[in-house]
Design a protein around this nucleic acid. Structure first.
Lengths: 257, 257
DNA sequence: CGCTGGATTGACTTGCGTCAACATACGTGG
DNA sequence: CCACGTATGTTGACGCAAGTCAATCCAGCG
């Protein structure tokens, strides 16, 4: 979804434009999907795993997959087998109404989980689409469950991740239910900003990889309204925006919108 | 949230107005909280537990609690220790914005889980308030995790319940993001109707225990708009509504709204 | 029987959607 | 590497769905 100046393109995905990837980590660039070597491990896995635990982890998460911009990692209706972690790039998840209307339910950046909607009825309930050329780790869910029965810390971590999704969504509902268009856009920018900060990227300058339309769908408004809010914030000197490139000028001001 | 003609008041909660309770089950009325005896077990627990598994379950879920109308089962900020299952009655969950605005994020009827928002950071992120005099089963989460490490079927069930919450919320987001007021109210009534049907209640006639205001908050609209939609549906002969008492006259018509 | 909180209905206002014209960025093939 | 065509973004004019404010009604309860 976003790229920052600190982003380093992975060799296998190199393009003219910067990509989101693991923060600098010379080792992980060249080695196949291995949690034990991954710079994102602190983000998507429990922090207190022993060396032995890591070996076990490596045996279940052995594969990764590249997904090209616009391609689906999975689609609603697909049988559920694995959950995923974004390694590089970004995704949106969308649910599609029978009448064809679609709603973006989330954006996912490196280190964030994907696919947990499918656990419930063992069928995915949304599409996960890459917003740019991306790569993900594949975590076969039955193996993860096996590991969770063995490792308390892993079990706990998985539960936290799932609960985190629940909390994330109820925050979004709050936004969709109660907030005006300007408040939503401000809250969205601040949310992106903190998520980037957690991952060590600059929270004040980033690229939004999704279109205004996708942002609008996520925020429950039209693309025109999104655009107007960006213009308005720019006039108020809260941000500088040229297309997808965003710079936050007055973060406290944004919080007061 | 709802009561139906089939509802039977529990002795300890008897009031002049009907309550939601377990469907008829003479045994469970008199016996303390025991999964092995609970008529709702099919709904909130895995269906294929052995007798031995049930004994284990009974050891961890030994307590229940009554919550009076308007009281909080837990509040945002409370430390998280247990998840809950609604035994009788109904609850709303609300998140409160710093500026005081509140958003209802869900309604919970018997057999449905409560409190899973707290797992993530071990602090509850919303308030759970009883809409009527209610009772819940208390499931200490660390014991549940213990049991999940032992019983694969229980582990799987817990994961499904959590994922189910994620799916439920993304459906709501769809509603808040894309649908018009009449569509939302229709979808809400249909949702309630199916949830009642699953539990063996009449899906066509029920009492909504929440106020128009709470419904509106949940649906992202004002109480006046909710009221207008009810009047409109009534004029169209889709429903009959007198206050909280609802009768669905034309369920297919409602689906087309 | 009157009080109180909730529900309904109407009149008016407004934020945002819709439609439309135009501008800019992007990527694709010559 | 440039040029063109398509996709995306911006801005304005206008209308409507839903919010706001207010009066009234109704039901349940002391």
């Amino acid at each position: 979804m976003l790229s920052t100046d600190q982003g380093h393109a992975r060799p296998d995905l190199a393009k003219s434009h910067a990509l989101n990837t693991c923060p600098p980590d010379p080792v992980s660039k060249t080695i196949a999907a291995r949690c034990s070597n991954c710079a994102l491990r602190q983000i998507c896995m429990p922090s207190d795993l022993s060396a032995g635990d890591l070996v076990k982890l490596d045996t279940i998460i052995s594969s990764s997959r590249a997904v090209k911009r616009g391609e689906a990692l999975y689609r609603a209706g697909d049988p559920f087998q694995s959950i995923y972690a974004v390694r590089a790039g970004s995704f949106k998840t969308v649910v599609i109404h029978r009448d064809g209307r679609e709603q973006v339910t989330g954006f996912h950046i490196p280190g964030e989980p994907l696919g947990m909607d499918g656990i419930s009825i063992e069928i995915h309930t949304c599409d996960a689409i890459a917003l740019e050329d991306s790569s993900i780790c594949i975590i076969p869910f039955h193996l993860l469950e096996l590991l969770c029965r063995e490792l308390k810390v892993m079990q706990h971590h998985v539960h936290k991740m799932m609960s985190g999704e629940i909390v994330r969504e109820s925050g979004l509902m709050m936004m969709l239910g109660n907030m005006s268009a300007d408040e939503r856009v401000a809250a969205f920018l601040l949310n992106i900003s903190t998520r980037l900060a957690v991952r060590g990227y600059s929270p004040l300058e980033f690229n939004l990889r999704m279109t205004r339309d996708e942002m609008g769908s996520y925020l429950g408004m039209t693309l025109e309204t999104v655009s107007r809010m960006f213009s308005k914030f720019q006039k108020q000197r809260l941000i500088e925006a040229q297309g997808k490139k965003i710079r936050i000028l007055d973060i406290d001001g944004l919080k007061l919108v």
